[in-house]
Design a protein around this nucleic acid. Sequence first.
DNA 1: GTGAGTCCCGTTTTT
DNA 2: CGGGACTCAC
Length: 740
Amino acid sequence: MSDLLVNLNPEQLQAVTLPPQHALILAGAGSGKTRVLTTRIAWLVQTGQVDPQGVLAVTFTNKAAKELLARLSAMLPLSFNRSARGMWIGTFHGLCNRLLRAHHRDAGLPQLFQILDSGDQLAAIKRLLKALNVDDEKFPPRELQHFINGQKEAGLRPHAVEAWDDYTRHRVELYIEYESQCQRESVVDFAELLLRTYELLERNEPIRKHYQQRFRHILVDEFQDTNKLQYRWLKLLADAGRDGAAKLFCVGDDDQSIYRFRGADVGNMRDFEREFHVGNVIRLEQNYRSHGNILDAANAIIRHNAGRLGKNLWTERGAGEPIRVFEACGDLDEARWIVDEIQSLVRDGMSRSGIALLYRSNAQSRVLEHQLFSSGISYRVYGGLRFFERQEIKHALAYLRLIANPDDDTAFSRVVNFPTRGIGARSIEALQDAARTWNSSLYAAVPHLAGKPGTVLAQFVRLVEDLRRDTAKLPLPELVDHVLDASGLRNHFRNEKEGQERLENLDELINAAANFVAEAGVQADAQDMAHALLADFLAHASLEAGEHQAEAGSDAVQLMTVHSSKGLEFDAVFLSGLEEGLFPHENSILETEGLEEERRLMYVAVTRARQRLYLSFAQSRMLHGQTRYNLRSRFLEEIPEGLTKWLSPLNPRTSAVRSGFGGYYQPSRGGVVAKAPEQPVSRSRDLGGLRVGQLVTHAKFGQGVIVAAEGSGADARVQINFGAAGVKWLMLAVAKLDPA
DNA sequence: GTGAGTCCCGTTTTT
DNA sequence: CGGGACTCAC
């Protein structure tokens, strides 16, 4: 047991061995957060302070849950591993799903209820609007989806929403309709999983008491990412901190809270500290990832935020190399430089997979990909379609869902005419009318239809019924296989020109089913359970969308947004596009809250790097089909000068633009690369010595970049982007502009 | 019911 | 500029 605790630093040790009490662990980037979490659980179990079934550990992603479990089983002796099954480890949504399946009757749900992912939910909302004849210009489906999810995450059912205007009153009406549609179809969206579970626990005393007594220790990962409802959910399980209830052990980092836009509320950390009377907040500030310069930069940046809980990262490693800053003429030059630099790193022996290219928004990846591609460097982009979100997989799942639950109109609509079987928009409309008349699902309305539509639709219903009957005793993988053939999906893609990959994905779905069965540890002879197991598999598919198109194994440079880089680390990190408007993003610049979140994002980006950090920006950049001239990011200015090394030809920190420069700097090693970069702009126009792209100073508005010009002579006007002061047109003859 | 043509829009994303 | 959603004509 004692070897569990060796090699922990004093703060980690303190956190791990805390007596049973509510605790808040402020875990900085790279401070061994997961280690503390797993060791804490192992220590509690091994010292006999808690039975495995008294442990509840909550994470945000399936990946984190899996890692927790894997590291935990590596720590515990085998005898404990068997009982480790008694622990509940999973995501908020996964655990809610489990609770709702166990108590579906009390929660007012059929046992085989289906889960809508965001795409399914959007489709359901569109269908609803169409059925109610609502103008989707006035009520954009996406906006409505956001509204409904927002209310649910605030714990509000329609009747509890305060409708402050006509528009909202109307949206509440639609919220009501949406709820009854979901109930009729036996489907549950992500927010509903949470809210439904919360209400179940709140209203059903025996069930609440049962879980309150069962769980003795509740551990929460990434606590800064919890939303209001999730926090209330935790409070309920911990009986608001009353004596004898579970102890909450929350680990998080307020400086890495970057999901405010989807409801995460850092305020939960402060609230938790207050409401649970957390005496001493433990800070994990020793960083095991990065060199000193990188941490100093990160500390300096984040210091500009107000209202932090406070934390300063440090390391025992040396200062390391300076942070390299590069100023490029255009986005293309920036990309070229990055690729040159990568090639040099790889020549020096760094593995490609140890190198990351980070950017604020996905649109920026294009130039980088193009450059990498033409240089023949293998790379991998995160963020594409995920396995269970692929069209062909969605179709296959829709058939499977109809087997488990024919009232699922979303699934019905998706495949009723796919592959095409002559069921057109007219037939569907007639069917929808019938369904409305009989207040039933589309599937159940089919027998009420007469005429030709009735006949073809009845054939489809028969197909689904045959599928259900023929698969009732099949093991899951064979069940899936059978459906792929009998539905005609395989045939359809076999005849399609580009269908090969889709066919392979369909086969992969069978593998996924096989893996699911293996991991679930179900006996192969549990035949009569085929459809119950199917429902579990479908829930799994909704809750875990699968890998982000992983081509694991190959040694490739990693491209991703700063958001998706959270939690990862790399030997070398390139952060590109450090420009006002891009990073910080223009939509977030105006309000402090938004700007501070951008700064936390910057903090996350910087702390991903182990050894080398490269920061770059471009004077001009192609965005939305036009060239933009941005000021360099304020975040660059927040890094102390001593930590950086500017790789630009001109002096650091003097000008953002150089005139008539023809060659370019040296990569961090090797000689000068002679290249002729495109000049950002050189429209011949008499601007009294000024050029588009040039940095100028105005007495009132401060520094800005000239972004456009028109007229000449006495009429000449220039448009200048002053950053915070806005974008303005100024008459050259009147405005006093000085080259900066 | 499919395919070409057109229009619109444009952070970040997990479950 | 480029992708996605939508429309209109066969």
